[in-house]
Nucleic acid binder design. Structure first.
Lengths: 239, 239
DNA sequence: CCTATAATTGTCCCTACGACATTTTTTGTC
DNA sequence: GACAAAAAATGTCGTAGGGACAATTATAGG
């Protein structure tokens, strides 16, 4: 009968074959009136030079959790940490990676493209790709097509019952901008009045005091209140 | 410049330290008027003899995906595959397992306790534990407490906008039983009328033709229609 | 046949969203 | 400086669907 201490001393992780484990993120943003995601051109095998999601292996020394991995990989490219990041789910299987049985923990994130544009502007191995133009980037690496599909569904679902899309806007934004972003993400028209009612009911925002000339009459600017949680509503928007 | 083929031939998974990867499931059922989960007493190190969720390592040879792993581990104990199984999320980190950096892909499942009782009856290392009595089983192995917490929240949330709890009932069931199960899971009273309206609107069920004497008037028995999907409603139930 | 009890159905209320009209505010033009 | 244009912001009313609870049935057991 061995003690737990003895057991742990004798334990070798690699005594049997283990799956590969990675982390990948779908970073969403709204730009030029369409919903886009960040894609990177793979510099290495496998699937070299295919387009892929930002991600990679866990750094066991430095990543406390896979959330850290996701943030680290996103920050490498954008230089900023996205204001919203949530785990989607894990995709696994024998066939999804030619190196062998693997699993990837997928995250999805939102950011205002203005805040993530620094280097991306001139990189030809990193690009904001509209979901409608994904077909021009096929085949994507691994099962990233499926991950993107799944993340998009989740984003749309959440947009129906929360204010999630504000994280695609800059720190200060107008209701009009929010309305637009919401419509772009959901890909359908939304009643302004319904949205504004929720906006106020959520109690997540405050006026900055300034306003913005969007063309005609100026619009009040709002920002997230400090430390608020994302509120969920009891009903979904829209038809 | 190496080709992908050459790269793959040279590739060794274990050239750098990798995390442990496991799969764990929270199997829910309703029994004796309370929501219970299946716990197993660990037979081995680490955390030997603590109570834990059913789960374990992926069998790279035989599991096509982690869903297979979850089912395999659940079936070992209950001899039946649960009628509902969904991925929750992955829990990871340096500290959650004394063997080292690890991740577990958590699933949650529902089953009618009547259908999973065969062996469990007399096993003293497997037990249906009410969520209210979890404190008597502490400390649970690893971070299983947190996983259970998270799974319970998800189950409750889904119960508010779907018929999910029917999977805790036998193949044929009455509306009264469904109402009870719903109330037990949500831990609050639910309007019968609202539930029945949804039940019909979902169009997921059909009468079996039989009825059941529950005491006074007999109640019609229903069953899931073949091949239906779980319907989601636009609003949440209840205050 | 009568009664108790649970199953099932009926009604009316209330809330939050949909549709769309109206008013307000600002910029720019002549 | 008055007016037109356009988006911002607000008002109003209809409606769907859940909440509350009352009313009606169907059975088992005397």
């Amino acid at each position: 009968m061995t003690s737990e201490k003895e057991f742990l001393n004798a334990y070798r992780n690699s005594d049997f074959p283990v799956p590969l484990l990675t982390v990948d993120s779908v970073l969403f943003s709204v730009k030029d009136a369409s919903l886009k995601i960040l894609l990177l051109k793979r510099a290495r095998h496998p699937h070299k030079s295919r387009w892929s999601l930002p991600g990679g292996f866990i750094d066991i020394e430095n990543d406390k959790t896979t959330r850290d991995t996701a943030i680290r990989k996103l920050t490498e490219k954008t230089q900023v940490t996205p204001p919203y990041l949530e785990q989607l789910r894990t995709f696994s299987g024998k066939a999804r990676d030619p190196r062998g049985w693997s699993a990837t923990i997928a995250y999805f994130a939102l950011i205002a493209h203005q805040e993530a544009n620094a280097i991306l502007q001139h990189a030809d191995d990193a690009q904001w790709v509209s979901l409608n133009e994904l077909e021009n980037y096929q085949p994507l690496a691994f099962d990233h097509q499926e991950i993107i599909q799944s993340a998009t569904e989740r984003l749309r679902q959440k947009a129906l019952y929360s204010m999630l899309p504000v994280f695609c806007l800059p720190k200060a934004f107008t209701l009009g901008q929010f309305h637009q972003v919401m419509q772009i993400i959901l890909d359908k028209s939304i009643q302004k009045k319904s949205l504004y009612r929720r906006f106020e009911a959520s109690d997540m925002f405050e006026e900055t005091g300034n306003s913005l000339a969007t063309g005609a009459r100026t619009a009040k600017l709002y920002r997230l209140k400090k430390g608020v949680e994302l509120v969920s509503f009891e009903r979904n928007l829209g038809q």
